[in-house]
């Protein structure tokens, strides 16, 4: 768990509590004929130097949020509402040139299946050089030097700049991608399922690496994954997404001790434990709603163990009224009628 330590000269120490990214009311829609509301009103704040986890399953919209922050949502997707500010500056309206500067320098991304993002016919060093020269005027020699530095930073032998991607193992390719993402010293790195395709041992190594780098360099991380157990270990704050919305958001410790939203609890209980008694788990029956259909009431209600017609009043609210995010404890927000009623 990262603890904010004010070491002299540590980048970011002076701006610990500064908000880097402030997303308000983000709406992203895909398609024209049958529009899918992939992201339906999200608020998300990322502060300098913190690791924010965004958890959810397929189709919940988490990758779309990442694309939106980098303004790389591709047609037929488009941002239809909300604002995204970086250090107070609105980026949704930025021109091409400014966006180009913003991307990678301020915010960079490690993509899902990043191993395939490397060009198989170019050497690793060349890909670094290409990337750096796209953003700054720098000679090939200097760029290669920097590439070697970065490889060393992520624990790869610097001589590997001359290797082709297929000569590296999966874990090493992942580190190369991470190194590239750090090349321009961004303040925020978005990582979309950076370890999903890796073996558990390599995954552990990469996670360790990310944590070490983050401590050393002080950048913020938006860690997107479906593996909540990873986030509970690694993140400072965690937001849980379901069907295009954030349903719970809290510091990791609070979530570990007392997750409130039934979906979060369902997720946590979907991880069979390695120790302790072997009990039968329930998982979460059913599947997420079709976001092309208009949504009424709580989107999780059809799968929620607490949505019972017998509790007439509560059930009515669950099926007709949209639950809003409310603070139930300092820094802990939940969007759930039942939790609200218990307050």
């Amino acid at each position: 768990m990262t603890v904010a330590v004010d070491l002299p000269g540590t980048p970011g120490s002076a701006r610990e509590s500064e908000t880097l990214i402030d997303v308000r009311g983000l709406h992203v829609v895909y398609g024209v004929a049958r529009p899918v509301h992939a992201v339906d009103g999200i608020d998300l704040a990322i502060r300098a130097g913190e690791i924010v986890g965004l958890a959810g399953e397929s189709g919940c919209g988490k990758t779309t949020v990442a694309s939106a922050i980098l303004q790389i949502v591709r047609p037929p997707g488009r941002i239809t509402g909300g604002s995204i500010r970086f250090r107070g500056q609105e980026i949704t309206g930025l021109g091409k040139e400014e966006l180009r500067k913003f991307r990678w320098r301020n915010v960079s991304m490690v993509f899902q299946s990043a191993m395939n993002a490397l060009n198989p016919v170019l050497r690793v060093g060349t890909q670094f050089v290409d990337m750096m020269q796209a953003h700054e005027r720098v000679s090939r020699g200097k760029a290669l030097d920097r590439a070697r530095e970065l490889l060393e930073l992520v624990g790869i032998d610097p001589r590997r700049v001359d290797s082709y991607p297929h000569q590296l193992s999966g874990g090493m390719r992942q580190r190369v991608i991470i190194a590239m993402a750090l090349a321009l010293e961004p303040e925020l790195v978005i990582m979309d399922e950076p370890t999903t395709a890796l073996d558990v041992v390599i995954q552990r190594e990469i996670l360790q690496q990310i944590q070490d780098l983050q401590r050393e360099r002080g950048f913020a991380v938006l860690f997107i994954t479906h593996d909540l157990s990873l986030l509970l270990e690694v993140a400072d704050r965690i937001a849980i997404m379901y069907a295009g919305e954030i349903v719970e958001s809290a510091p990791a410790a609070a979530l570990r001790e007392r997750a409130q939203h039934p979906y979060t609890n369902g997720l946590i209980e979907s991880f069979p434990p390695l120790t302790g008694p072997r009990l039968k788990l329930a998982g979460i029956p059913g599947s997420p709603p079709d976001l092309a259909e208009p949504q009424v009431g709580c989107r999780f209600a059809p799968r929620c163990p607490y949505a019972k017609p017998e509790d007439a009043y509560l059930y009515f609210r669950q099926t007709n009224e949209h639950p809003e995010l409310r603070e139930v404890a300092p820094g802990h927000l939940v969007a759930c009628h039942r939790v609200e009623a218990a307050q």
Partner: peptide, 8 residues
């Protein structure tokens, strides 16, 4: 016809 179920 429909986005693949696994696209996030």
């Amino acid at each position: 016809a429909r986005p693949r179920a696994e696209a996030s």
